[in-house]
C-alpha cells in the first residue's frame, strides 16, 4: 500500500512560534442526534460525547462538537477505516451518517507563545481566555477559508481546514508568525 501523505508533507515554519503540518491524521465525521451517538464515539475514539463546543481528548483519539448534530472524531490515520467500521456497527439500525474525512482535511499545529494573538490577526473569533477557554472547539474562518481550531494550552493549538486550502492556510499562519510581528495583546511573547 502507498504511504499516506498529508497535504504539505510535514512542512514547518519557525517564526515567533512554530507552524507545523501535523501529518496524515485520521478524521471521521459523525452526524446524528448527539444523545444517540455515545456508543459510536466510545467505540471509535474511547471518548465520551463532548458538551456544546467542547473537545474530548485530542488528535490521537478525540471527539469534537462541530454542530448540534455533528461531531468530528480524531484517531490515528491508519486506524480510521477500522474506527469508521466500529462506529457504523455501534449505530446499526439508527439514523446516522458516518464518513472517513481523513483525506479531505489538513491539520496544523501551532506551538509557542502568543497563539491567541496570532489567530486573532486572522480570524473574527473572540480570543479572550474567557470567550475561548482551552479545550473549546471553535469553528470560524481564518483568512478567507473555513477552519476549526482549539487551544490545548496557551502554548499549543491545533487548526483544522480543508485539504484543498492547506497551502493557503500554511502561508497565512506562517506570515502571521513572522518574528517581529508579535502583538503582545493577550500574552507577552518571548522575544
Amino acid at each position: 500500500m502507498s504511504d499516506p501523505q498529508s497535504a504539505l508533507g510535514g512542512a514547518v515554519y519557525q517564526g515567533y512560534l512554530t507552524v507545523k503540518d501535523a501529518g496524515a491524521q485520521g478524521m471521521l465525521t459523525l452526524r446524528g442526534d448527539h444523545a444517540t451517538l455515545g456508543a459510536a464515539v466510545k467505540a471509535a475514539t474511547e471518548q465520551g460525547v463532548p458538551a456544546q463546543r467542547q473537545i474530548e481528548g485530542g488528535l490521537g483519539g478525540g471527539a469534537a462538537w462541530a454542530s448540534p448534530d455533528e461531531l468530528l472524531l480524531f484517531c490515528d490515520y491508519s486506524a480510521a477505516p477500522e474506527a469508521l467500521e466500529k462506529a457504523r456497527k455501534a449505530l446499526e439500525g439508527q439514523y446516522f451518517l458516518a464518513a472517513d474525512v481523513s483525506d479531505a482535511r489538513a491539520i496544523f499545529t501551532l506551538e509557542g507563545p502568543g497563539i491567541r494573538d496570532l489567530l486573532a490577526k486572522l480570524c473574527p473569533a473572540d480570543f479572550a481566555p474567557k470567550a475561548l477557554p482551552t479545550g473549546e472547539f471553535r469553528r470560524s474562518h481564518i483568512g478567507q477559508v473555513a477552519a476549526a481550531f482549539w487551544l490545548e494550552s496557551e502554548e499549543r493549538a491545533t487548526v483544522v481546514c480543508f485539504r484543498s486550502v492547506a497551502q493557503y492556510m500554511f502561508d497565512l499562519l506562517s506570515k502571521a508568525a513572522e518574528p517581529g510581528s508579535e502583538l503582545g495583546y493577550f500574552a507577552p511573547t518571548a522575544s
Binding site: 456544546q52 454542530s67 448540534p68 473574527p124 473569533a125 473572540d126 470567550a131 470560524s140
Partner: peptide, 12 residues
Amino acid sequence: PYCGIEASETEL
C-alpha cells in the same frame, strides 16, 4: 441560537 457563539457578520 444553536451553538451559542457570538458570530460576526463575516461568519454568517
